[in-house]
């Protein structure tokens, strides 16, 4: 009985270490193909359009309302201490350091991440990945690698876009609706924000980009080649990447600040 449960634990441990190892090799191989010529510019452009450009609208809406809500809540709290003038600083700091990278990554994981997993899974079911291999092309090089590299490029850009729109959302509520002085909204913001705040947000965005692409491509690539396999892989990919974004965010915050 006891030996049975030990065997069970051991087997579970071994298989999770195996999956971890395999995903590590998978990532290393994808990154190697990304820097080794030939660089597939057409594929990169296609993926950039899908992961980057097509995420802009949803990022815009999310960012606008996040900034607006933040300004509303911040105004309420700050006005209790009579320091409404600090609203610009409060909005900018929380957006750039924290909410920008995290919310942007969560939205991309939900929109593009799920699509990445589903697409790779379906290519597997319909034999498109083996077909690539039969044509002498490594699917990791052709399908996976551009997705990972593009995700690392796109996330910081989308985050920058998110930050700007959210600060603008805060401006709409704070300055236009609640009547805070425009000069203090932007002036204090510029004075208080440091370059460190901005580049640590940037590092977060880079890491989240890598994380989303790695998790979503690997889960899609190793999905069971059945309908249920792909649907559960898609769910797992979104859940796992969202949770790891929040966890990695904590680790990065404690290191960076």
């Amino acid at each position: 009985m006891i030996s049975n449960s030990i065997t069970f634990l051991g087997r579970g441990g071994l298989s999770s270490v195996q999956v971890l190892g395999r995903s590590g090799v998978f990532l290393a191989l994808s990154l190697y193909y990304a820097v080794r010529p030939p660089i597939r510019m057409t594929r990169i452009a296609e993926e950039l359009e899908f992961i980057g450009t097509k995420s802009c609208l949803i990022i815009f809406v999310t960012a606008l309302f996040t900034g607006m809500v933040l300004a509303l809540q911040g105004y309420y709290t700050l006005s209790k201490f009579g320091s409404e003038a600090l609203l610009g600083t409060a909005v900018a700091l929380s957006i750039i350091r924290e909410l920008g990278p995290v919310l942007c990554a969560l939205m991309v994981a939900g929109r593009a991440g799920s699509a990445i997993t589903a697409e790779i899974g379906i290519m597997k079911i319909t034999d498109q990945l083996p077909a690539l291999e039969m044509m002498g092309i490594d699917p990791i090089e052709y399908v996976i690698s551009p997705k990972i590299i593009v995700s690392i490029i796109a996330l910081p850009l989308l985050t920058a876009f998110f930050d700007i729109v959210a600060i603008f959302g805060g401006y709409i509520v704070g300055v236009l609706l609640l009547g805070i002085n425009e000069g203090s909204y932007f002036g204090d913001m510029v004075k208080t924000l440091t370059l460190h705040d901005i580049y640590s947000g940037f590092i977060k965005a880079l890491s989240f980009g890598l994380l989303i692409a790695w998790i979503c491509t690997f889960i899609g690539y190793t999905a069971k080649p059945t309908t249920e396999g792909v649907s559960s892989a898609t769910t797992n990919a979104v859940v796992l990447s969202s949770v790891s974004i929040l966890m990695v965010d904590y680790v990065l915050t404690s290191i960076l600040f």
Binding site: T126, D127, Q128, P130, A131, E133, M134, G136, I137, D138
Partner: peptide, 23 residues
């Protein structure tokens, strides 16, 4: 090796059961 295998497959063609065309 993987490279030799890919080289060898240039002499092979395969028709998959579901055709495996890129959608």
């Amino acid at each position: 090796s993987k490279r030799a295998l890919y080289e060898m497959r240039k002499e092979m063609g395969m028709l998959f059961q579901g055709s495996a065309l890129f959608n």
